[in-house]
């Protein structure tokens, strides 16, 4: 289901449809996170990806208000062929590596450490405190940068 939604997301001609299909894919991934007992990440995934990022995308798509001929751009068949070849090679290599590492015989063991918020907070605020602070500064910088870039003219 996620694969289908992802495929649809990159093949739709209309930007709005593509963004909505991508949102479906993100919600599917959040469901997988729930299955893997990564509850906090599932919630964050829905909030940030399916919520914030999709709203931002749809907002920009509608803001740009593209004409019909802008949407009709497609690359040449040669590029498509190269892309498909690369993709097949990449995927084949990945599956081969997984098979060699015996990952297909290994069932998922869940239960020792579930990704609930309280369990996740311990490593986050003990080992990863500095990256956490850096991430907050990164968000601030991105916010200021985005406002600055979209400003009409700098005085």
């Amino acid at each position: 289901m996620i694969t289908g939604a992802g495929l649809l997301a990159i093949t739709r001609r209309s930007g709005v449809a593509a963004a909505l299909w991508a949102a479906v894919a993100f919600v599917g991934i959040a469901g997988l996170f729930v299955l893997l007992q990564a509850y906090f990440l599932a919630v964050v995934e829905v909030l940030v990806y399916a919520g914030a990022i999709m709203v931002l995308f749809l907002f920009v798509i509608m803001l740009l208000n593209l004409r019909e001929e802008d949407l009709r751009v497609v690359s040449g068949a040669r590029l498509h062929a190269v892309g498909a070849l690369l993709a097949a090679g990449f995927l084949g290599g990945l599956v081969w590596t997984c098979r060699r590492a015996g990952l297909f015989e290994e069932p998922i063991r869940i239960g020792e450490q579930a990704g609930e918020t309280s369990n996740l907070a311990v490593p986050l605020f003990q080992h990863f405190l500095l990256p956490f602070e850096i991430a907050s500064f990164l968000l601030l910088a991105a916010m200021v940068g985005a406002v600055l870039v979209t400003k009409r003219r700098l005085t």
Partner: peptide, 23 residues
């Protein structure tokens, strides 16, 4: 299994890669 999950991640990554390359 873990292998299935990694394969799904690979498929998704490949779709994204195709999107970057072909659109």
């Amino acid at each position: 299994t873990i292998g299935h999950l990694v394969t799904l991640a690979g498929i998704l990554f490949t779709i994204g890669m195709l999107g970057v390359l072909s659109r």
